[in-house]
Simulated assay, not measured.
Amino acid sequence: MTAELEGKKGRPTPSRDGRGVKQSLPSRLVRYLREVVAELRKVIWPTRKDLVTYTLVVLVFVSFMVALVAGLDFAFGKAVFAVFGNG
């Protein structure tokens, strides 16, 4: 039995060595679209309440980060002008 396995060991499978059946472009496109639809059916979509909650959380976080960066920019600008003068 090991002699049988050793004879096949190290040889690539047909799908990996590129000798698979070549499909036409339209059939590949149709297959791709079917797989996309199949994957989208697996998605757990958020409810409207979840969507509103997540949107508000993102907007509050982004607003906070904008205010933080603007505040730091203003503070560092004042510090640079205090150290080096208005030029």
Results as ranks from 00 to 15, higher is better:
Val21His: 07
Met65Arg: 12
Thr55Tyr: 02
Tyr54Glu: 15
Val52Lys: 10
Met65Pro: 01
Ser24Thr: 13
Thr47Asp: 01
Met65Glu: 14
Ala38Asp: 10
Leu25Asn: 10
Arg19Asp: 06
Val30Asn: 11
Ser27Trp: 09
Arg28Val: 06
Val60His: 05
Val21Phe: 05
Val21Ala: 06
Val36Asp: 05
Glu35Cys: 07
Leu33Met: 14
Leu68Cys: 02
Thr47Cys: 04
Tyr54Val: 06
Tyr32Trp: 12
Val57Trp: 03
Ala70Gly: 04
Leu56Thr: 12
Leu59Ser: 14
Ser27Cys: 08
Thr55Gly: 00
Ile44Glu: 15
Pro26His: 03
Leu33Asp: 05
Thr53Cys: 02
Ala67Met: 04
Arg41Leu: 09
Gly71Met: 01
Glu35Tyr: 09
Val21Ile: 07
Gly18Ile: 07
Val60Cys: 11
Ser63Ile: 01
Ser27His: 11
Ala70His: 12
Thr47Ser: 11
Leu56Tyr: 11
Ile44Asp: 14
Thr47Ala: 02
Val52Arg: 15
Val37Pro: 01
Val43Phe: 08
Val69Ala: 13
Gln23Asn: 08
Gly71Ser: 11
Ser27Glu: 15
Pro26Trp: 03
Asp17Ile: 05
Leu56Phe: 06
Glu35Gly: 11
Tyr54Trp: 13
Val37Ala: 13
Val57Arg: 13
Val69Glu: 12
Arg41Tyr: 02
Gly20Pro: 00
Lys22Val: 10
Val52Pro: 04
Val57His: 09
Glu39Cys: 08
Thr47Arg: 02
Pro26Ile: 05
Arg31Tyr: 07
Leu33Lys: 13
Ser27Tyr: 08
Phe61Cys: 09
Arg16Lys: 13
Ala38Lys: 10
Ala38Ile: 01
Val62Glu: 14
Met65Gln: 15
Phe61Leu: 11
Lys42Asn: 10
Thr55Cys: 06
Arg34Trp: 09
Tyr54Ile: 10
Leu68Ile: 02
Phe64Gln: 01
Val57Cys: 08
Phe74Asn: 01
Leu25Val: 12
Phe61Pro: 00
Val52Gly: 00
Ala70Val: 04
Asp50Thr: 03
Ser27Asp: 15
Pro46Gly: 06
Lys22Ser: 08
Leu51Phe: 13
Leu51Tyr: 13
Asp50His: 05
Thr47Asn: 02
Tyr54Gln: 15
Gly20Lys: 04
Asp17Cys: 13
Pro26Phe: 01
Ala67Phe: 02
Asp50Val: 00
Glu39Pro: 00
Pro46Phe: 04
Val62His: 05
Arg19Met: 07
Trp45Met: 03
Leu56Trp: 12
Leu51Pro: 01
Leu59Trp: 13
Leu68Glu: 05
Leu59Met: 15
Ile44Asn: 15
Val36Gln: 09
Leu40Val: 06
Leu40Gly: 07
